[in-house]
Every structure is written in C-alpha cells, then in structure tokens.
Design a binder for these strands. Structure first.
Length: 575
RNA sequence: GACUUAGUAGCUCAGCUGGUAGAGCACAUCCCUUUUAAGGAUGGGGUCCUGGGUUCGAGCCCCAGCUGAGUCACCA
C-alpha cells in the first residue's frame, strides 16, 4: 500500500512507530498496566504537607507537550481529568544512555499517544499539582493527529466544532471537547435514577420484542425488514405499549422498559430515526395517580442530577418542583385562541382552523384538527412543566374514555419548554371499545392518513381475557436528557446520531491498472493525481496526465524514471 | 421534500473589485532549559468539496452534484 495519500504528520508518526520498534519498544503492548490513582483524585486530595501520592501509577492520553531541553511538561488525560506531568532527562535516564528521554520521549511520542507513568506528586513553583515521572511506558501510539483544543480561564481556543465531524467521529469529540463526556454521564445517571425509582415500587423491568409483525402502539411510519426463515415482513417497533399491556393482562402489577423505538420519518434537531422511550404500566391505577407518580419521577431526576429542581435550558430556567399545573386541552385552546371547540363536529372544527389561519386537508379527522390547533396555537406557551389533560377521544385510540365525558379520554401529556415530554393514559381495557377504535383508525388510513394505527387482533384478544384498570406512561429519554443537560439538539445527547453514510470513493486495484501494462509503481501516483479508477484515467487528457505524473514524481522525490508521452498515451488508449 | 447558508493546511479561520493561496495552533530543525491556551528563531505542509461553464485568467462569478448546519414541511 502506498503512503502517498497520507499527510506529512501521519507519515512522521508512522515513522516514529517503526523507530520505537527498532529500539525494542512495543508501541501496542499486550500486558496490563496497573493504575493506582486517577487524575481527579490526585488533584483533589494531594496535600504537600501530608506528602501523599508518592508512588503513583497513572495512565492516559498525552494532550499537550512543552519541551524545554532536559525538562518537559505534558498534560495527561485519563477518564477523570487532566493532570500535568513533569519529565526530567536525568530522572528518566539515570545512566549515560539518554535515549529514552532524547529520542523516545522527545521525538517519538506525540500528542494523542497513550502512556503509563509512575512517579510522585508535587507542586510546581507556579503552584500546579503535577506528577514527577520516574518511569514511563508507551501503551498505545496514535498515528493520526488529534485536533488541538486549548483552554485558558474558561475560554476555549480552536475548538473542534464542526458538527459533521463531531458526530461522525464522536470518539474525537469525547477526547478533545470538554463537557461532552459529562453530558453522556448525565444521560446514564438520568436512566439510573429512574430505574431506581421504579424498582423502589417493586415494578419489574422487562424486555419485549423489537421485531414485530404488526407495528402497534403508536401512529408512525415503521422501518420494514424481512425474516428469511419465516419468509414474512417484520417491522422495527415504533412503540412497545401493546406488549407491556399484554404483560399486565398476564398478571404483573407494574412493568417498565427502556426501549429503543424506530420511526421512519424526518430527522431534525429533535428527531432521530432511533430513539429511547421509557414506558411504564401499573395495574389498578388511573391517570391521576400517574400524574402524581410522573411529577415525583421528574422532580427526583432533577434533584439527583443537579441537587435542585431548577434547571437552566437555553435562556430559560425550568423548575421541576411538583406539583405541576394541570390544564384540560380544550381549556388551553379556549385560553389561547378564544374558541370553545368542545362538542364541535368535524365541519365546525375545520371552520375554526380556517379562521385561525391553519392549513388543513381532507384526510384530517376531528382528532388531528384539534391536535393541529393545540400544536400551532397553544403548545409553545407551556414552558414550565404543565400537564395537558383530557384529550378528545379521536386523538387517543388506546386511552380510556373520560369518566365524566365520553367525548374525552383520561389522558395527559407533560409539556416542558413547549415540547411533549410524557404521554400517559388511563389505559383502555374495554376490548369491544378497543376494537372499534382500531377500526376507526383503519377508516382514517383508508382516507389517506398513512400514520393511522394498524389493528392488532392478538392485543384485542388479550384484552378479552381481562386487563385490570391500568395507567401507563411514556417518557422520551432523549428529550429528557436534552432538557436536563441544557442541549437544544438531540444529536448532543446521542453518542452516534444517524448521519448520511460517508461516501466511499470507488478505487481500482493495482492489478487492474497492471492489466493495461501500467507498471505497479506508477499506480499510486496515478491515484494520487486524482484518477482512482482505470476508466477515470482513460478519460483524462494524456498530456495533462503525463505532466501530472512527472510532477508528482519530482515533487515527492520518488526517483522513478518518468514514462514517455507515448507510453502514457498508450495507457490511456482503450484497446 | 422546499428555502437559506457553509465547505480553503491535521484543527480553528482570513482571503479585497476575478490577477502568484495566508494567519494562529499543530508538525519539523535549531536555540533556551520549571512552563501555564502561546519561551525564541527558522522551515515544511494545499485536489481552495466534486464536475462543468464564463473569462486572457476562477478560492472568488454562473450551473449541476456531494456533505453538513439553520428555517419550514412531515413527525398526534
């Protein structure tokens, strides 16, 4: 393989790699390196009076390096923090042979390399806690240079900030950008905190199918795949709701699942094709109980994460202290539009939408129309946590009818920052009503609503055996993580957000060029000149190609004998 | 999917009215020898995203494409 495609810095590092091996130093050693301290721990607990941390073994990545003759400083970063490390030539090399310092440390190590160091902790004249190295060991050589980010007094210089690169190469983002790792630690902490809360009630964490033959429990376009052995289509789940309710039918008191769901829809700042949802179902409860439960949950998460209920988001301060306000959706619409839409039929609603300047189409039923009004005119007003409750029955095919008004359902959504965070119902457990609602959805889909729900007859059968009154709640984990870590984009709380795949350049093998009589040593040069395939080369102007090739030969000092113009002409000819 | 906007050195970015591709960091060589984002000096490093077009001449103008970002549409 040719090195022509590598940058100067990459070549230098590859060269250093070989030099290390020549000196008998394995750049990728197999054995364990025993660590007995972390950077954060030392920075916090070192005390010159006590003279502690005098035999420390630390491992991490070199993040900066300042060489001043026979003394040098580096910053070493481990999983906890960065600490300054001091190297002195005569400590590293007590004898006459100064290779380890002059060559290995000064020349063959680079920013980005992972090393282990042993020594004692002290404070420099400037007062920075540092590790004085007595021995060091190369643990892994980095042959690709890291972006250099510097920071002083909270000001970041030359940040690695291109979102494309940050998301595609999250590993680099995690290394060089402070705070990224913290966001993901917080994300896990949120999940741990919720799990602990559910377990304290004795509810059971379960797993349900991701591959489903009927994608139920929500209204969304699914991803479709195929099972070869059964020769049937399977869908990646858009929700796990119907499976969790089957488990309630089966007799569990409470079940929950942190579930990856998949929806084949648009991607933007708040939507990723795969996303995480927590759903929980508890028997013998209703949505009032669930509102109280949800408040406690969200408040606990805020407290566990931040030690207080007030959490900043953008230029706002969100207070997750319970209780949250409860506003019936029709009241919300009346408040923000002046229209009382309760009891209106489809035509009247259409009229209201028109007056409000909302676009509607024929496929929209009552539910969608009301949702449209709420989404456009009301939603964004609810910045502080607010329960919007009692949604019209058409909007909620899985929700139990309201005990006082059959037009409404016992449903709530928790709005934060003008966005839906949770969705919950007193679950519909009347099998006959459920089947009718599914059939209603079928009609909608025949009308052109491509997001109406599929009918899951097995789920109806389960309800026919009897499901206790149950309340269920779903909460978007990615969104919660965004709110709790003050990030306005979902990509910031997903390690590997979905991206368009990087385009792979088509490249012909050396053999393919050789078949045309082109010497193997010229192939990398042709490819360096930008002609990766034989065909692309043949389409080139032979004169230009000839000049390019001779130019590269000269510039890279390859010392090859230049081909004649006729030869290049011949390479380019098609026969 | 539509519109707007961006793509220049390993990273962050300049680049005038179209006229020989620049800076800082990183890298290399030398000097200095306990520095605090950066001690000093010198130097190497470029498919200006790709492909067409206009032009005597394109990083810059025009067209198309690729890959992001933002806004909207879609997403109960």
């Amino acid at each position: 393989m040719s090195d022509l495609h590598l940058s100067e810095q990459e070549l230098l590092r590859r060269n250093s790699l070989q030099e290390l091996r020549k000196l008998g130093i394995e750049p990728y050693p197999a054995e364990e390196f025993k660590v007995n301290a972390t950077a954060a721990e030392i920075l916090e607990h070192f005390d010159p009076e006590k003279n502690n941390y005098q035999e420390v073994h630390l491992a991490g990545r070199i993040m900066s390096r300042r060489i001043m003759g026979n003394a040098s400083f580096i910053h070493l970063m481990d999983h906890t923090d960065r600490i300054q490390v001091y190297f002195r030539r005569d400590d590293i090399c007590p004898g006459d042979d100064k290779t380890l310092y002059n060559t290995v440390f000064k020349k063959l190590l680079d920013i980005g390399d992972i090393i282990g160091v042993s020594g004692y902790v002290f404070k420099t004249q400037v007062g920075e806690t540092s590790l004085h190295v007595k021995e060091f060991k190369v643990l892994s050589k980095a042959i690709r240079p890291l972006p250099i980010v510097k920071e002083k007094d909270g000001v970041v210089y030359d940040a690695f900030s291109d979102p494309d690169q940050r998301y595609r190469q999250r590993y680099v983002d995690l290394i060089v950008n402070e705070g990224v790792m913290d966001t993901f630690r917080k994300r896990t902490q949120i999940i741990n905190s919720m799990r602990q809360f559910f377990n304290s009630f004795g509810y059971l964490e379960v797993e349900t199918p991701i591959l489903q033959s009927i994608p139920g429990g929500a209204a969304a376009r699914p991803f479709i795949t195929h099972h070869n052995a059964l020769d049937i289509p399977l869908y990646l789940r858009i929700a796990n709701e119907l499976y969790l309710k089957r488990l309630i039918v089966g007799g569990f008191e409470g079940v929950y699942e942190f579930a990856k769901d998949f929806r084949n829809e648009g991607m933007d700042r708040t939507h990723n094709p795969e996303f995480t949802v927590l759903e929980i179902y508890v028997a013998y409860k209703d949505y009032h109980w669930m509102m109280d439960f949800t408040e406690r949950l969200v408040e606990k998460v805020a407290l566990d994460l931040h030690g207080k209920t007030e959490v900043p988001f953008g230029d706002k301060l969100i207070n997750y202290q319970r209780p949250f306000k409860r506003v019936p959706i029709l009241e919300a619409i009346r408040e923000h539009t002046g229209f009382d839409v309760s009891g209106m039929n489809e035509e009247e609603l259409r009229e209201v939408c028109k007056k409000l300047g909302l676009e509607v189409d024929a496929s929209m039923g009552k539910g969608k129309l009301i949702d449209e009004i709420f989404g456009e005119k009301c939603e964004h007003h609810y910045v502080q946590p607010t329960f919007i409750i009692d949604y019209p029955v058409e909007m909620s095919p899985l929700s139990k009818r309201h005990r006082n008004n059959p037009e409404l359902t016992e449903r709530f959504e928790l709005m934060v920052n003008g966005k839906e965070l949770c969705n919950a119902y007193s679950e519909l457990n009347d099998p006959i009503d459920q089947l009718e609602r599914f059939e209603e959805q079928l009609k909608l889909s025949e009308k052109g609503d491509d997001e109406a729900m599929f009918i899951d007859r097995d789920f109806v059968r389960a309800l026919e055996y009897g499901m206790p009154p149950t309340s269920g709640m779903g909460i978007g984990i990615d969104r919660l993580a965004m709110f709790m870590t003050n990030n306005s984009s979902i990509q910031e709380v997903l390690f590997f957000p979905q991206m368009r795949p990087e385009k792979k350049k088509q490249i012909d093998s050396t053999e393919k060029f050789q078949e045309k009589g082109i010497p193997a040593e010229w192939v990398p040069i042709i490819q360096k000149a930008g002609y990766l395939t034989l065909v692309s080369m043949q389409q080139a102007n032979p004169n230009k190609l000839h000049q390019d090739l001779c130019g590269i030969n000269k510039k890279e000092k390859l010392g090859l004998t230049n081909p004649s113009k006729d030869e290049v002409q011949h390479w380019c000819s098609k026969e």
